[in-house]
């Protein structure tokens, strides 16, 4: 771990990524394993819930979310365990969570305006992504500022 690492920013980034991962992993497990409780127009067809928006092709959005949080989490661990400052890794988390934020805005819009049903775990995920974006931006700006300072 580099001695001048902005620890609070890194710590928050890892925590938000981890919480987001746990949340998305729960939704993924629920998608594959649990008995669904949909509100549906025809039997066995989850039209009204969010099935048409809950998957991209055969892949559930929740799984994509879990992988994205996991990547952010391991990038944070990578920064923590590296001996030299890894500004690019911090930028990668920031970029990932920026994309995640755009996706979250769209998904929250879908819940409010199109599906007209709110999923608490999805809203938690959107919040985690917002927090992750803020903390990783903080981390990236602190690390890149420090990298420019003369050693």
């Amino acid at each position: 771990m580099p001695s001048n690492l902005p620890k609070p920013a890194l710590f928050l980034t890892a925590i938000f990524a981890f919480l987001g991962f746990a949340d998305a992993a729960y939704l993924t497990a629920d998608h594959y394993l649990a008995v669904p409780l949909p509100c549906s127009l025809t039997q066995g067809c989850d039209v009204v819930l969010n099935s048409q928006y809950a998957t991209v092709g055969p892949v559930p959005v929740a799984l994509l979310g879990a992988l994205y949080y996991l990547a952010a989490f391991f990038l944070a661990i990578y920064i923590f365990s590296s001996e030299s400052p890894k500004v690019s890794a911090a930028r990668a988390i920031q970029g990932l969570s920026g994309l995640g934020l755009l996706a979250s805005v769209y998904l929250v819009y879908l819940q409010f305006e199109i599906i007209r049903a709110l999923c608490m775990y999805c809203l938690i995920s959107a919040t985690m992504t917002l927090l992750l974006f803020l903390s990783s931006s903080w981390l990236a700006s602190r690390m890149s500022r420090q990298a420019k300072l003369p050693a």
Binding site: F21, L33, A34, F73
Partner: peptide, 20 residues
């Protein structure tokens, strides 16, 4: 880090299976 992630996945799967 790896252990925490794997443990989290296992706990979640167990919780979801038992509720299902």
């Amino acid at each position: 880090a790896g252990f925490i992630v794997i443990a989290t996945v296992v706990v979640i799967i167990a919780a979801v299976v038992s509720s299902g």
